[in-house]
Simulated scan of single mutants.
Amino acid sequence: MMYESGETPGSGDADDLVPIIMWVLSQAGLVSAEVEADYMWGLLLPSASSGEASYYLEAFHSAIHALKNLMPSPESSPGNSLDSVKQDFSVVSDHGIMKIVIPDEKNGSIVTRTLPIRPGTTTREVCKMMAHKLKVTNPQDYGLYKLVDGIESLLTDNECPQKVKTDLTTHGFHCTFAFKRIDAKIAWPILS
């Protein structure tokens, strides 16, 4: 079973969490946040690398990375409201987060989830986070795929999905990522 009963994919994802952490960091004025995040990664036990602690640490690191790359829009005011952070965050949505589509085989639909990620996050790490987040009982049966023009290709464990997407985008291709059962046959729509 992919989801616990009553749970729907998409609830409580990084679209909401990362902007909130960004706002808190901007209000706190914590100048050593990146060093603190790296220190916490070093302290994280290997057994916790795919659990909640890892997910929230990824969200913290993603918020830091997004703040470092944040370019305020011309119409944004100097105020520090959460709404302005969310609006500005959409400008840099590729920094610190990764959108992944997931086929919901029960309902025959496709849902989108957002994960916080660090630069250099590998496919293996993304799959661990997705399996934990979706409460997948058999994670070895799932993989991360790149979707280009409706054609899927399984990414290897050591590939960096964000680098794959950047390379494809610079060559004029639109790339989306999907997390699905390896043996599932999905007729992907051509996304643009």
Rank of each mutant, 00 (worst) to 15 (best):
M1L: 05
M2E: 08
E7A: 09
S11K: 12
D13Q: 11
D16V: 09
V18S: 13
V18Q: 12
P19W: 03
I20F: 14
I20H: 13
M22E: 13
V31A: 15
S32H: 11
A33E: 12
V35S: 15
E36Q: 12
Y39P: 08
S49D: 13
S50E: 07
G51E: 11
A53K: 13
A53V: 03
S54F: 01
S54T: 04
L57H: 13
E58H: 08
H61Q: 14
S62P: 09
A66Y: 00
P74Q: 05
S76R: 09
S76I: 02
P78A: 05
S81G: 02
D83T: 09
S84M: 06
K86G: 14
K86T: 14
V91C: 06
I100C: 11
V101W: 03
P103K: 03
E105S: 00
K106S: 10
G108I: 01
G108F: 00
S109K: 05
I117W: 04
G120D: 04
T121E: 08
T123Q: 11
R124W: 00
H132L: 01
L134T: 09
K135T: 10
Y142N: 06
L144F: 06
Y145T: 12
K146T: 07
D149T: 08
E152L: 00
L155Y: 05
N158T: 15
C160I: 15
T166G: 07
L168Y: 05
T170W: 00
H171G: 10
A178W: 01
F179E: 04
R181E: 07
I186V: 15
A187C: 04
P189A: 05
P189C: 03
I190V: 14
L191C: 06
